[in-house]
Each structure stands twice: as structure tokens, then as C-alpha cells.
Write a protein that binds this DNA or RNA. Structure first.
Lengths: 112, 112
DNA sequence: TTCATATTTCCAATAATATGGAAATATTAA
DNA sequence: TTAATATTTCCATATTATTGGAAATATGAA
């Protein structure tokens, strides 16, 4: 992961509403959530939600698919993992005691 | 870690210069770096650097100490880990959507 | 069709961040 | 002392991000 991509992803998560949106998406798994459901749960006006969803999508942290007249959003788990690995390697000195799921790929990647 | 703290920390790292600063601090380890050294390495004017260092400090990601006429900055590794843990808990931990998570049953390193 | 619902885009106002010169402050050396 | 160096604060400006109503677009239902 390049520095610039990390900055973009970090910036996408560095907002209360977007972090909340992302956490909802993570909780929803691969099934995802319709935009309207997110709007309802977080009490966000449609235009505001759309703006934040676009930010998350552009940052590579959310993926959308049209399903009927709904647009379903899912978390991009692969890129979330890349971000965590980047932070672990570059910001924690490679030390991460918790997540094996994050630490293992980092170890396999070796020096960077 | 509270959502608000996570947003603050993410925001602090979501800037090219600050991410670069933080990575320098991580590389410098416990010893840390004088502000002037950081300014020189990243070609940042004193006022601009000071602004970013303040952001990192306020976010709990950097610690400063006065040493003679220098101010030495170090990375706050503990808080960086907390941030990574927060992200893995909320953004990829606690579920099996990631193949890496499912594929690694606490194999190699010291778990948790 | 025509209507109802879902979502996005447009847009302009507002808010938040970033920039860096210049002055102020802090510390040491002479 | 006085001078020199290191860093921060002040402050005006510039840039970017956020907000949400209203209009536009998309799809399915009647």
C-alpha cells in the first residue's frame, strides 16, 4: 500500500459519520446494506449520506452494487486489511499483539 | 478506545506530511527526533511543522520532551497500537469474512 | 404509461484545515 | 549580560471538506 492510498483511506475513516457507516457495513458482512437503511440508522439526510458513501467508495473502503431499485453497500474487507497492515508496519514498528488476521500477511510480505 | 478518539487519531495520520512525520518518529524509536531534524528531513517550514506536530500530539500519537534547547518528539506506540486494535475490532476483527482470519488458527506468533 | 420509492447530483453556504512569514519565547553559549 | 539557535505562537490567507435542500436520475409497481 502506498503512502498516498493510506492517507486517502485514513481520511475516509477520519469522520464520525463515515466511521459509523463503515462499522455498519462491517457488521453487515458480505450481504451489505442498502443506502436507505444506513440513512435511517444514522439519521443522515440522503444527500449527506451519499456524499460520505462516495468518499468511502473512492477511498476503496466500500463497494456498491445495484440490486433492484436499491443500492447495496458492502465493506471492502481486503482494503481494510491492507490499511491495518500498513499501519502495523509503518506506525507500530511492526509490532501488533492482537490480530493474527492482520499480522500474518504483514509477516509474509517482509520488508518494504 | 472511543470512536471520537479514533476519529481524531485517524485524522491526525490522514495527512501526507503528518504521516511522514509519524513514520520518521516510529523509525527513530525511543530516542526520538528533534523538531529541527524533522523539519530538515521533510523540508517543512518551522511554523508548518509545529502545526503538524501539535496535531499529532493532541491526537495522542506523539510525545514531546524538552532536552536542552531542543524539543524531542517520539511516537506514542501504545496509542498507535490502540488505534490498530480499534480498527481490527471494528473493521475486520470478530468476523470471518476475511480468508486470512479463517485460514490462520493462531499458528505462528504469540497470540493476543 | 403513470406513480411511488431510492439514490445521486447540483449547488451554494458554511465550517474546518493548512500554510508560512513574522514576532515571541526558550534555552544555551560566549 | 548579549548573541545565537530552536521552537512555538500569532495571524491573515488559502484551500479543502461538509452540509443538506432541491432537482435529476433510476428502478420497480400499479
Amino acid at each position: 500500500m502506498k503512502n498516498k492510498d493510506a492517507v486517502t483511506a485514513l481520511g475516509a475513516l477520519a469522520h464520525e459519520s463515515r466511521l459509523a457507516i463503515y462499522r455498519l457495513l462491517v457488521a453487515a458482512g458480505h450481504e451489505g446494506l442498502a443506502a436507505g437503511v444506513i440513512a435511517e440508522r444514522l439519521h443522515l439526510p440522503p444527500a449527506t449520506l451519499s456524499f460520505h458513501l462516495k468518499e468511502l467508495s473512492h477511498a476503496g473502503l466500500a463497494i456498491s452494487r445495484q440490486e433492484g431499485r436499491y443500492v447495496i453497500y458492502t465493506a471492502n474487507f481486503g482494503n481494510a486489511l491492507k490499511l491495518v497492515n500498513y499501519l502495523t508496519e509503518n506506525c507500530c514498528g511492526g509490532n501488533s499483539y492482537l490480530p493474527e488476521c492482520a499480522a500474518v500477511p504483514a509477516a509474509a510480505e517482509t520488508a518494504n
